[in-house]
Nucleic acid binder design. Structure first.
Lengths: 355, 355
DNA sequence: TCGGTGCCTTGAGTCGATTCAAAAGGATCA
DNA sequence: TGATCCTTTTGAATCGACTCAAGGCACCGA
């Protein structure tokens, strides 16, 4: 490492180190002639300011950590892009870390970021109630929860996942489905649970309405709506495929007619399995995904999906963080919640007639 | 910031700062009793080691920068995952930066990473010949080019893009296509150029062979193969769609029968446009993409694609970097090149009969 | 009792940039 | 000429952890 430092620059420009530092930080207070000498020396020596030393002295960093559950999921790529864009405007760097939904990896990243004394951390936690997040905040590293509501101890920005699940449920019930499968990820992930609760509420509302003045003349077998939930070990294309294969293996009479997947990766995998087993989507199986990533619209059968303002989530998270950093004393933690919206495409766009 | 530092820990444990440092770095040389006192003090105070100060003193960092052209492209997500996995084993952190194929953003990231004195930089450069990369290396920050061959000034790990283009070309020609469209991205991106050169070579080989002892009895109209190339402003789904729309608007007799897209995002967009305009894939238009991302297999029509060992690229890049960091003196720069392989799926799997 | 031998612990000096009180230099005015 | 004010420059102290030569201590054998 050819560590040219400020001292060498000072020697070469025949000024003191203090002056070089001034040129770097408040050039206007240095006389033009001196300033030029210093700049020349910097250029000639190829001096690059050591941000580490600067940071140590000044005590605050210009980087923000963003820990996501899965870098390979385009949803998070878009969130990151939003965060990056706004951070950039504030001369701040976003470093993206992947927890891969593994608490141990998440913890390692948190440790590393705290040790590096980053300005703050944006995180989609594996477990939002982990004491580590509170500790971090208590020790002075502001934390903003992304895509996951906080309980008042920190800021958060999220989308109403229960509402999203509800919308998806209402949509499928309205299309005549009476046996619906929820394909989730790990139960520990809050989003999965909320989306499940959302569709459950839609289902129980349907149960409450139908027996009384049932819209459906004659009523289906049993009259109500049945919901089954499977929780896969990860929110990935591969596990969606596995779920799809399990469904395809069921006898027709036991098989649900619709699947609501906790994210689009699962839905895409599920869809692949349907195709592989000769089940037609949406005729034999309707599918609704979640996140509305760009690939959803480009799938074998264009995928219905519950959309979220992905980049806005990222931007807002940075916004909240910068606000907190700017006035740590005055700051009141805020919970920002956006609304999801269902995009209906071919994969669920069919009115199912009673059998 | 509740900066508990090593000094306070020392006071509380009634030892000197040197001893605390020893406990942190070489616990085995400290007596068990003292060690315990120090650990207790650390726990009670919630002390977190300041990596910034440590780095300043020790002079080398445990983080590596990875700058990619597009975080939202699953190809790079996979490369990042590979890098991350291996780095993790060496107790090193990978920070992912997005240049979005913008030279200015790339430069900003390079500056920031150099100022932070990272251990090294892995980069898929917008412009591999930029003098900045050489400067970085000269000033002591090792650089490894990813997915882009170097010229000996640094290490690189890449896939043979000309071969990939060639394979795709041979495949399409072999399937009977005589008018092929190459859909590229910005010309400045090396990969785009190489993939284009690859398919050009396949086309010109076909021209050379056919007039002599043409395999095709009777020969197509004109006997040879025609290649048209369009260079879109970005390697994105949206620009693929634009290209597809332009193609669909052409009169049938002018329209190519196959498209080779410089990456899968373009190909997916192109495919969407075909569907939107009622053109059947592969009957009216065969499509071959590049990268073989997971979504390629899940597309409306499963996409043929030239595959690359994505995670291996990332792992190998970290490997080369660690090697260089371990022995900067002995180190000889190496260029690792992997072979691509074509995965034929439905989007191009049809023998085209002469019109 | 003394010197020798390990084993632990100590603490001043260091990394590189920033800060700020103080000094130096220059201009103006009485 | 000396006093005053303003602009510019100086350099020692500082941030927090690490390093290593030097010192302390206990124990052993002579």
């Amino acid at each position: 490492m050819s560590t040219t430092n400020i001292k060498e620059v000072a020697q070469r420009a025949r000024v003191s180190v203090g002056t070089v530092s001034n040129v770097l930080n408040r050039p206007e207070i240095v006389s033009p002639a001196t300033r030029k000498r210093v700049f020349d020396a910097i250029r000639e020596l190829g001096f690059v300011r050591n941000e580490v030393a600067r940071h140590l002295r000044v005590g605050r960093s210009r980087t923000v950590g963003l820990i996501v559950l899965d870098v390979a999921n385009p949803f998070f790529a878009d969130v990151a892009q939003g965060a990056d864009a706004l951070a950039d405007e504030h001369d701040t760097m976003v470093v993206l870390c992947n927890s891969a939904a593994d608490p141990a990896r998440e913890l390692r990243h948190l440790d590393q970021l705290e040790q590096q004394r980053v300005m703050g951390i944006l995180i989609t936690p594996v477990d939002a109630s982990s004491p580590r997040l509170a500790e971090l905040a208590a020790r002075g590293t502001p934390v903003v929860l992304v895509d996951s509501a906080a309980t008042g101890l920190q800021c958060s920005v999220a989308v109403d996942d229960r509402l999203g699940g509800h919308i998806a449920g209402v949509h499928l019930i309205e299309r005549g489905h009476r046996k619906i499968l929820f394909v989730g990820g790990p139960r520990s992930i809050k989003q999965v649970g909320d989306r499940h609760l959302g569709i459950m509420s839609a289902v129980s509302e349907a149960r409450d309405t139908e027996p009384g003045g049932g819209v459906e003349p004659g009523g289906g077998p049993g009259g109500g709506v049945e919901l089954v939930a499977w929780f896969m070990p990860a929110l990935s294309v591969a596990h969606g495929r596995t779920a799809g294969e399990r469904v395809a293996a069921l006898p027709v009479e036991e098989r649900p007619t619709a699947a609501f997947c906790a994210n689009d990766l699962l839905a895409l995998g599920f869809l692949q399995a349907m195709a592989a087993h000769g089940l037609r989507v949406p005729h034999d199986m309707a599918i609704v995904g979640y996140d509305d990533i760009d690939f959803a619209a480009a799938a074998t059968v264009p995928l219905s999906s519950v959309g979220q303002p992905r980049e806005l989530l990222g931007r807002t998270a940075i916004d909240l963080l910068l606000e907190e950093v700017a006035e740590p004393e005055l700051h009141r933690h805020r919970q920002v919640i956006f609304q999801p919206d269902l995009v209906v495409r071919q994969s669920s766009d069919l009115h199912r007639s009673p059998p």
